[in-house]
Write a protein that binds this DNA or RNA. Structure first.
Lengths: 235, 235
DNA sequence: TTTATTTAATAGTATTACTATCATTTTAAA
DNA sequence: TTTAAAATGATAGTAATACTATTAAATAAA
């Protein structure tokens, strides 16, 4: 992780297992990433193909395949980028906050506001990327290849983000028996509830469309602290 | 919903919007459903095709396309069948339990034991079906077509299951502000945490492989009741 | 038994998901 | 600055996927 330079925003470094050739290293690669976010956001991951992307970029399929083995790997790259950016934001905003409950609240605020562009990291359309993360991130690991992909380190960013938050949870209540499950549930719920609010509203308690993020924050905060404070939570 | 007859187990009736021709009505249709569960469980939904299924069944692609428009519709059908079966089980086991907290505990028990074959409904390999539900159910709605699919009624079973559980939650604490969000979070977490325990264990607190379901039940029970009992939960 | 319905067999199309080859341009090293 | 190396573009090609259409054969209903 490199600190933001004076001229440009921070550069997120991702494991070289996530690509064939580093897309951040070349102009075509950077355009690939930027335009793929636009296209996936527009038509969805299942309808997305490298051919369509190449047409949009006025490049060729073969050129794009030099960066990513296939579209699934590109998806893993994009969501990993998002997790890394979130992790960076969390560190940035919590590093001088001594109170652990307050740090957890900040984390939940950041999680529920992930659809806003963050001025410290934006070199990408993060709002579009977050829409992709909400709809498509689960597909990165819900495959028959999970175990080999996991062994190859493809999910490292997500696991590290979870691990960072687990530390806060454990600081709040070292006795709590399910810190990892709680954190992954919060991370997943933040996305799922937003999706439900937008598409399957009977599965959530979203109010008017504008206040979704406040309601979502309130739900997650309530859930997290209720779990951590409940007497029966300790073992 | 029809009660179990003397000779055979209950027949789950699904909305006719879920198929082109009712697969329960013919021998080929029933084989389609049964064999597709085996094949999707084996190779995963992305690798599954009607051609492979036809080969396995010694039928033809064209015949199978008469039952379902495409493989996505088949997936929606299969997971809807599972939700309907769960709903039936829940009604069956809770209908004469007066105590709402006890009913919720029963629901969570059923949710975390969904991978066992239930003797009252088994005409399908429910263990294999539940493995599919865990890995693939989210893909039923995480598409660009969610809104039109939802309008067509494709997610009715899931929404009704959630609504049934919401009633219990509201009986336990009518003041609780997020009953729908809590229920959908519990439903999603039951699947996700099982998947994590099996494939990404650092995201959960699963113990030895054999005790996953007890640990998962304990986590969900703790979470649900902590949320419902917390003083701050009321608004 | 005739008619209608369902299935099987076969074929065919457009798109997807790639891989290969080679010429050309861009970049980087000597 | 030349020269070599690397990256891109252009073109082509293959196997698999996701279907649709047609016709014939089998089965069931009237």
């Amino acid at each position: 992780m490199i600190f933001p330079s004076s001229t440009t925003s921070l550069r997120i470094e991702l494991s070289d297992k996530l690509f064939l050739r580093d897309p951040q290293a070349t102009d075509l690669g950077r355009r690939l990433v930027g335009e793929s976010i636009g296209l996936i956001d527009q038509i969805g991951f299942e309808h997305f193909t490298f051919k369509k992307l190449a047409q949009r970029m006025e490049s060729t399929e073969a050129s794009l395949y030099r960066y990513f083995e296939n579209k699934h790997r590109l998806l893993v790259y994009l969501v990993s980028w998002h997790w890394a950016a979130l992790r960076y934001q969390i560190r940035f905003h919590t590093h001088n906050v001594a109170d652990a409950p307050e740090r957890l609240r900040l984390v939940l605020r950041i999680l529920t506001q992930a659809h806003h562009d963050d001025p410290t990291t934006t070199q990408l359309d993060e709002a579009a990327l977050y829409r992709i993360v909400v709809s498509e991130a689960s597909k990165a690991y819900l495959t028959k290849e999970v175990d080999s992909d996991n062994q190859a380190g493809l999910f490292r960013e997500y696991k590290q983000l979870a691990a960072d938050i687990v530390l806060i949870v454990q600081e709040i209540n070292p006795q709590y028996a399910y810190p990892h499950a709680l954190v992954s549930t919060l991370l997943e719920a933040a996305r799922k509830q937003l999706f439900f609010a937008q598409h399957l509203p009977s599965l959530t308690d979203a109010p008017a469309a504008t206040a979704i993020e406040q309601a979502l924050y309130a739900f997650l905060e309530n859930l997290a602290f209720a779990a951590l404070m409940a007497g029966s939570a300790a073992r």
